[in-house]
Each structure stands twice: as C-alpha cells, then as structure tokens.
Design a protein around this nucleic acid. Structure first.
Lengths: 311, 311
DNA sequence: GCAATAGTGTCTATAAGACAATATATC
DNA sequence: GATATATTGTCTTATAGACACTATTGC
C-alpha cells in the first residue's frame, strides 16, 4: 500500500445489477431482461449496466438503471426500496473481460408492466418460481461443516463470489411443497402465474442465478426485522395484504389471527388510517381496516420466520 | 443493456479494503496502516490494495491483502473469519481517480503484532476508541425520516456510499459512557489501552471512517445471531472470555449468570471440552470450564443486545 | 343462509432478566 | 480469611403459537 498510484493499475469494468422484486398476483416476481448480445444470447439477465466512472455513485447508478429499465418516473421510484446487496467478482464471471458487479436489491409495489429501457431490450417481471436457481444450491449443509473443529462454521472462502452476507438465518432446507420456489403457494389471483403445467425453468446469464438467490435470502431475512414488507404494498393496505407479502416471500402460510395481533403489537410497524377497505374478502368477510407504514426502521420484537427453532 | 461490450466502457480501479477486528486487552482494535503516499499522507487507512483483474476473486484478493498486512501464515489465517462488508463508490472518494472499493470485515483472535507487508508501510492494531468515527454520524435519526409518509424509513440514497446494509439493529444512539467508542469499559489488562488521558482521535483517510463504522455496526449485529464471537478467541475459551467479547464489541456489561445459562442453552453455540482453565479468575474464583465453538452456523434463539426494547 | 374472513380472547410453553445462593479459587 | 468469580436456582414478565370465538360480509 506504500507508493502506489491508482493510474498504474489495470482497471476493471464495474457494473451495477438490480434484483428488483415485486408481488404480482400473490407471487414473487423479479425484473429480468432478455439478452440480445453475445454471451448468453437469449438468456435472461438482471437489469443493470456500467457505472459512469467518476460521475455517479454506486447508489445513483443503481437507481438510474432501475428507472431506465422499469420506465418509472421519480414519483414512483420514490416508493421503491433500494439497498446494496453485495459485489461479485469472480475472474471469469464475464467471459469477455474482468467485470465486477455491485448488486442491488429493490422492493417495489406492483408496478405497471416493465418496458425495456431506451435500448431494444425486452424487460419483464418473471415469477421467481420459473427461475432455475438450483444450480447455486451449493454443497453447504449449513451446519457442522467441519465437525468438531472450532473453525467449523467459518466460511471464509466457502462461497465463491464475495459472500454477500445474507444478514440473517437461512431457509434451512425448506421442504418441497413450500418455499418461494413453489411460487403459487398463496395465489391471490392467477395473474402472471406460471400456469399449471409449469414450463421449464429459465436459465439465467452469468452468475445471476446466485445473485438472485442471494437477493431472495436477503429479502426473506430483511422482512423479519424491518418493516420493508410494506414496500411491496401501496400506500394503504390491510393486515391481510401484509400477511400475503410475508407468505409469498417466505413461502409458508401464517396464522392469520396471530399475525394480526403480532403486527399491531410491534411499535411503529403500521399505523391505522381510520378508514376501511372498500369491500370484504374475495369470498366474504368483514371489511378490513386500512393501515399505512409506521415510522419504525426496525421491528422490535422481530417477526421471526416459522419453522426454524429446535423443533 | 442491449448491445454493449465491456471493452467500450471506461474502466474503474477496484480495490479491496479490510476492516480487521481483534481484541487486545479487552478492547476492540482495528488493523490500520499509516499512509506514506500522497493523498492523506500520514493519516491512517485500512489495509487493502488493488484487485488483480482477471486473476483473483474479490474474496481471494481480500484474503491475500489481509495475509500480507498481518504477516500471517495460512494456518493462522484459517482461524480468521472474513466476509464481504459492502462496496463504496462515491465519485470523489479518491481524489486521484474513480476507485470503487469492496470492503471486507475480518474477525481475528489476538494476533502477533502486525508488521507491514512487503512494502515499507507501518501496520498496527489501533484501539477503535482512538478513531475519529464521529464524522460519519450523519444526519440519520434512524426513525421517522419523513413523518407520516409510507416511504418514511426507505433510505434509498440516505447513505452516501453504497449503503452496505448493517444487517441488523443499530446501536440506537448509545449514551456516552458506554459503547465501543468508550473502549475501556471492560478492561481486562491495560495492554494497548489508550491511556488515561486519551490522546486526540486519529483521523482516517478517504472514506475509511465510514467503512470502519459500518464494519463495527455489522460486527455488533453479527455476533447477535451467529457464533462468530468465538472467532475473536482461541481454540478453547471460557464462558467469561466469550462474555468479554460481547461486552467489548457491544460496549455494555452483561449479566454474568444470565449470559452463562443463555450461551449454554443455545444449541450448537459452544461445546464443552471437558477440561478447565489452568487457574481461576484474576482475583480468585473457581477454575472455569473450557469450551470450543460448536457446529451451529446461526444462534437460535439469538443473543439479543440489551437496551433496545421498548423500555 | 352458507361460507369465508377480520379481529379478539384465552391458554400454554418458552425465553429474558432480576436477584439470590453456593462453591471454589486467588490474594 | 476476605474477596471475587463460576455456576446454578428461582421467580417474574414478555412473547410465540395453538386454538377458540364472534361479528361481518360476499355469494
């Protein structure tokens, strides 16, 4: 570190990629673009692009790319949560040249259909259940990697690219039948659902399958201890709608009564608007009260994911 | 995103910087190097360096830099926990040219005195209490940023550089007298302690004060729900030593009895070795039993930081 | 009217924290 | 022997989850 000058060193291309998540018809969707260019032509990839060196921050680049890809104006973008996810820099992750990408994670309310940015790329919201994320379910058994060794769980180089810290408990091998990858476990309206015969999973370009998987891990963890689940909803929402977010992201049904009381007991999570929904449930029931997001930045106590205790 | 080629775009220098933490004499220390070069000459900076484009991953670059700076061999490095912290890419963070740095966070047991890497830089473990981290205590009040608005806590561009997700509750404005910055709140031996008259805080180069602060936030959060506090200790340790880690990192004293029972009740956190410490406490007391890290990757239930509930 | 849903009440098991107590070292 | 520490015990309170119950609405 003594006498170096950055200009003496070979530079690397730096991009931002966005894992933008939204809920459509009760299923979690991610924003993807179909690649027209050379590597991975025809495959789907995360929206993103190059950072304008020296002219914008990483955050700004991510916000710009997200706006371009979704075609959203500033007002809509205001309601989108955007945070850095992690950086990925395997030497060969782009076959053309070394590219380090800084991945961002976005939570968006149900947005109008994506339209490709200025360029001719096709952008679309794809249900995460249609993605082939299995390839990255690497050999991590999550516990007792090196049995008996004190360094057992230290995973310094366990993950290949950057280890973008999932920030909280993992879904500990959710059984088949549940989980985000099940997609339609809690279908409200069969909007863009994959359909009953579930076509072949879509492959993702580059290392984007891992990035999406890391983003999903982060999303699942983050709604546990932050009120960010509300970022998937409109300005006003019912407790049942909020529960739908948790059920869709976690992929497991939640007890309606307990969830209701729990949400209202966490200070600053939601605050009542005083009004009620226009109509009751789809098949009957009283009109639910409406709430908006409260001022809390963290949930105390947190909403812990079910099925991860010693049971 | 349509027809681009990475080679058409201006490249950016990519570095890795390490926030390496260790405990010396009951106080948290961070590994720093004194800058000999032009910008910020004489100031202290995080150890790090350029990523060898196309020849190593980000993780590998971080491990290499840490090894070079600490002079550790592979055996010692094995016991160090290293994870990605976040990326920082403000356009003007390096006055010379655009540089994006990928920050890493390391937890290390008490290591031999650092010696500068191959180059002539002076590397040293500095108590975090001596650092000037206050500059980065930006205007975030942590809650109700935009009162009443549903977007109140969405901090898209709230932080300037990359928002490296602190992953868990923040120290919510810890009062004076406690906190990591107090340093000697739980002094075991007055080893490298700042001394009673506490010299002027050291300024950090570039945006490294923010990076260190983010690393401390992450460390404080991470030991809550992972067993990584054991990474600060040797292969075998007593519960009191483990408690010392928590007290040093969190900066607040913990109830010995409750902590003891709690740690032993979390499955997979620690496992007994069967032997006991060579001698009792410094001023008397029975010999404590020795434990080693268990196989758990996550703590269930977590060890929640005190003083952050509704009280 | 039937059925589903919103919201509330109750009960139990678990966990956290405040003390308290006992045994065992060091000085 | 005084004193500090390790470890365990007890008690109170908060919380999570299972279950039950009522009221209200769509069909």
């Amino acid at each position: 570190m003594a006498a170096y000058d950055p200009r003496d060193f070979p530079a690397i291309a730096v991009t931002v990629d966005i894992v933008a998540l939204t809920l459509r018809g009760g299923a979690l969707h991610v924003l993807l673009v179909e690649r027209g260019g050379r590597p991975f032509r025809g495959a789907w990839a995360l929206p993103g692009g190059f950072v304008r060196a020296g002219r914008e921050s990483l955050d700004a680049a991510a916000a710009r790319e997200l706006a371009e890809e979704t075609g959203l104006d500033a007002a809509h973008l205001e309601r989108v949560h955007l945070e850095q996810l992690g950086s990925y820099g395997e030497p060969a992750r782009d076959p053309r040249m070394p590219v380090v990408t800084v991945a961002y994670l976005a939570f968006a309310p149900d947005l109008p259909e994506a339209r490709g940015g200025g360029d001719a790329t096709a952008a679309a919201w794809i249900p995460v259940s249609r993605l082939d994320l299995g390839a990255r379910r690497d050999g991590r058994t999550d516990r007792a990697a090196a049995p008996g060794s004190a360094a057992g769980d230290r995973d310094r180089t366990a993950r290949t690219a950057g280890e973008p810290d999932a920030a909280r408990p993992r879904p500990s091998e959710q059984g088949p039948g549940h989980g985000i990858d099940g997609g339609d476990s809690v279908p409200r309206t069969p909007a863009a659902a994959p359909g009953p015969e579930a076509p072949a999973p879509l492959p993702l370009a580059f290392d984007h399958a891992r990035i999406v998987a890391d983003g999903l891990d982060r999303a699942r963890a983050k709604i546990e201890y932050t009120p960010l689940a509300t970022a998937f909803l409109g300005e006003e929402f019912t407790i049942a709608e909020l529960r739908g977010v948790y059920e869709s992201v976690w992929g497991s049904p939640l007890h309606a009564g307990n969830f209701h009381r729990k949400v209202l007991s966490v200070p600053g999570f939601v605050e009542p608007t005083g009004s009620t929904a226009a109509r009751g449930g789809a098949r009957g029931g009283p009109r639910a009260r409406l709430y908006r997001a409260g001022g809390a930045a963290l949930l105390h106590p947190a909403l812990l994911r079910p099925g991860r205790d010693g049971s």
